[in-house]
C-alpha cells in the first residue's frame, strides 16, 4: 500500500508538511503520491466529518431500501448509477438479501426527502419498491464517536 495512504488511513488530520516529516520524504513526494492516488481514483476526495446535530441548519437523513429489476446485459449497474447521480444521494450500495440497493439520502427537511423518494426515486422505471427509514440520531460517524469528548485521558506525565 502507498505509504501516504497508510498514514492517511491512520491519521487524516496531518498536514502535507507533517506527513513529509513523519515519512522522511519531501513535501513534493507526498503531493506526488496524493496526486497518484487521485489519478488512480483511489482517493476520491476529502469531506469533513461533522456532528450535524450541532449544526443549526439541520439536515434530514434517511436510508432507503430499494428493490429494482435487473436488466439483461447490465444487471443492476445502470439503474444503480442513475440513482447515484442524484445530488440527494450520499451513498449507494448493492446489497445481498431482501432488497437490492441501500441508498443514503439527505435533504434540508423531511418533506424534501419524502418528495425526492416519491417524485424522483420511486417512479423510475425498474424500481419495484422503496422503504424509507429516517435517521433519528447519530452515535458514530466514519469512525468518530459523537457526544463523547475527545479522551483527555488522565495519563500521568512521567511513568517508569
Amino acid at each position: 500500500m502507498n505509504q501516504v495512504l497508510k498514514l492517511l488511513l491512520e491519521r487524516t488530520d496531518l498536514s502535507v508538511e507533517q506527513m513529509a516529516q513523519v515519512l522522511n520524504v519531501s513535501v513534493e513526494e507526498v503531493n506526488r503520491q496524493l496526486d497518484q492516488l487521485k489519478q488512480n481514483r483511489i482517493l476520491l476526495g476529502w469531506r469533513p466529518v461533522l456532528n450535524l446535530a450541532k449544526e443549526q441548519d439541520g439536515v434530514v437523513r434517511a436510508v432507503i431500501e430499494v428493490r429494482i429489476t435487473p436488466e439483461r446485459g447490465g444487471g443492476y449497474n445502470r439503474l444503480a448509477e442513475r440513482i447515484s447521480r442524484f445530488d440527494e444521494v450520499e451513498s449507494c450500495y448493492l446489497m445481498s438479501g431482501a432488497y437490492d440497493l441501500l441508498v443514503f439520502v439527505s435533504g434540508p427537511s423531511l418533506q424534501k426527502v419524502a418528495a425526492f423518494v416519491s417524485e424522483k426515486l420511486a417512479p423510475l422505471a425498474g424500481v419495484l419498491s422503496t422503504s424509507t427509514h429516517f435517521l433519528l440520531r447519530s452515535y458514530k460517524e466514519h469512525g468518530f464517536l459523537l457526544d463523547v469528548p475527545p479522551p483527555e485521558a488522565e495519563r500521568l506525565k512521567v511513568t517508569p
Partner: peptide, 19 residues
Amino acid sequence: DFFEIVARMDGVISLGIGE
C-alpha cells in the same frame, strides 16, 4: 523526583511516559 517537577507545569509535551 522528575515527575514532581513536571506535574507542576503546564503545556508540557511528555516523552517521559512509559505506557
